[in-house]
């Protein structure tokens, strides 16, 4: 019978026996719901305030689109609408 990957049955390209992948103890059943209480998800209150480039008044700056020198992509005049790149 062929050995499974976990049993070291598969080999690498160079012919060496592959190390079995080390995993931790399973903490949930595979069919359990993806959401667990206590885990903060994207919808959690307060996340909007933590998102870079999203201003409290509903406007946004280029920082919502890029972390690389975002100010260079902001509007030249602060009175202009800030249309950040996607």
């Amino acid at each position: 019978m062929m050995k499974t990957k976990a049993e070291g049955g598969t080999k690498t390209r160079k012919g060496k026996a592959a190390e079995p992948i080390r995993t931790g103890r399973a903490m949930i059943r595979p069919d359990a719901t993806a959401h667990l209480k206590g885990v903060r998800e994207g919808n959690t209150k307060g996340h909007y305030a933590h998102q870079k480039g999203h201003l409290p008044d509903g406007r946004s700056t280029a920082a919502r689109s890029t972390g690389i020198n975002p100010r260079a992509h902001d509007a030249i005049d602060p009175r202009m609408p800030n249309l950040s790149p996607a």
Binding site: G42, K45, R59, S60, P81, L83
Partner: peptide
């Protein structure tokens, strides 16, 4: 809305 700079499209919540 976009030209006015109002780009907010989501709001956060707790279940």
């Amino acid at each position: 809305e976009v030209r006015a700079g109002r780009t907010k499209v989501f709001t956060d919540f707790d279940v």
